[in-house]
Simulated assay, not measured.
Amino acid sequence: MKYSTPVQKRDQPDDSYKFQPLPAPTGPFPYQLDIAQVIPDINTQKMTFHLAGDTGSIRSTDFQRKVITAMQAQFEQDNPPQFLFHLGDVVYNHGEASQYYRQFFGPFQNYPAPIFAIAGNHDSDVNPAAPPYHSLEPFVKVFCDTAPNTVPFSNDIARKSMIQPNVYWTLKTPLANIIGMHSNVPKFGIVTPEQQEWLKAELRSADAERPGKALVLCIHHAPYSADINHGSSIPMITLLEGIFEETGVRPDIVFSGHVHNYQRLVKKYNSGRSVCFVVAGGGGYDELHPIAELSDTRFTNKLDLFEGVTLENYCDQLHGFLRFSIEKTGVQLVMKGDYYSVADDGVVTMEDQFEIKL
């Protein structure tokens, strides 16, 4: 039997020494991007988009290409997605410019919509054996440009650079404020004090626009997880739950990657309110991460931090992606998620559906 709660992986080494300094912002504080600058005709009544993380792979792009092909097929259906929000680890293993064509520009060259992104730990790492470069330097050229340009290392692919103002930033849309964090290189993530203060201000700012807009938070390192490779990130749980408590603001949903599978966890707070934490990191890396077995002594769920958190559904044997929508129905916002797995033969199966009324 497998766990139905988050788990902590015991006896993990401290790798905080892997932390990398952040690059300078490319846009003005408070690092917000109006989606109308990228998609001028964005639907103001219903917004649909894809979410996927950990799409890159140093060994093979076969799984990634099958996932992308399945996502592309949805553009031939009713209510096609308007963009992809990538949850990090675009390029393995060290975020090198030389890997962006093979792992991003080539596979995504026929994806017919804009791609926004937060950086993962692999995007942020630096290869000591390569010619010198700074952490996130290629990522910034691809996603944090000041204007759409041909990326020098894209092999002249038609996709231009994105204009995000920073590696942590907020996407402003008519139906939601989507806050994208940067959690750096270490296995369980590190968020700088400066970013923490920014996050508090962005949460309060987004909360002021409720109930007309949803509040969505994206961070690469999954706070809650039941997988065998990483398990939950205690530093990210402590950080986020502390900030939620301090500000009195909790997001409507939290999306993460880092863990190579799909999980939908729900935390019920003492107030009676629940928040959904979704892991969607099965986007293409060839190694998937199974959910831990109850008999596996490497893991425990005996932590107060896990109180009230339940693993509602998961898919840990197949790659896949999430299709997510936010729709205004009268005065109410309704969020819907559909998670699709993609088998080795390309067969696409809906594995999970959920709905959240705000």
Rank of each mutant, 00 (worst) to 15 (best):
F108P: 00
E197T: 12
P13H: 14
W169G: 07
L84G: 03
P114C: 08
L215F: 03
V254P: 02
E287R: 07
S98Y: 05
P186G: 12
D41I: 03
Q8W: 14
P174C: 09
N43E: 15
H122E: 11
K267A: 11
N79E: 14
A201S: 13
D352N: 15
Y100D: 09
F324A: 12
P211I: 12
D156L: 10
P23Q: 00
R264K: 12
G320T: 02
V347Q: 11
F244G: 01
Y133T: 08
Y285P: 00
Q12H: 08
A206T: 10
V348W: 05
P128G: 12
Q12I: 13
D338G: 09
P40L: 08
K9F: 04
A158T: 13
E96Q: 14
D227E: 10
Q353N: 10
F188N: 14
T55I: 14
L217P: 13
D227C: 05
L265V: 04
P6Q: 01
E76S: 13
T297P: 05
L288N: 05
R204V: 15
Y262G: 00
G106L: 12
D286N: 01
H50M: 14
D345T: 10
A158Y: 06
G272H: 00
D54L: 11
V254K: 03
V90Y: 07
T300E: 01
P223C: 06
Y285N: 13
P23T: 00
Q82H: 10
K46W: 07
Y224C: 04
N229P: 01
D296E: 15
L171G: 01
V279L: 07
Q196E: 14
G282R: 03
V259C: 06
D14H: 14
G106S: 15
S256W: 06
V347G: 00
L199K: 08
Q99K: 14
I163K: 02
P6M: 00
E312C: 12
P112E: 08
H182P: 13
N110C: 00
Q45E: 15
I234V: 15
G27V: 02
Q12V: 13
L33S: 07
A214P: 02
E246N: 07
V275Y: 05
V348M: 10
R250W: 06
G95R: 05
D207E: 10
K328E: 07
V334C: 06
Y92S: 07
R210Q: 15
F255P: 11
V266E: 12
Y339A: 11
H182Q: 15
F108R: 03
D15C: 06
T300H: 00
F116H: 13
I253F: 01
A214C: 02
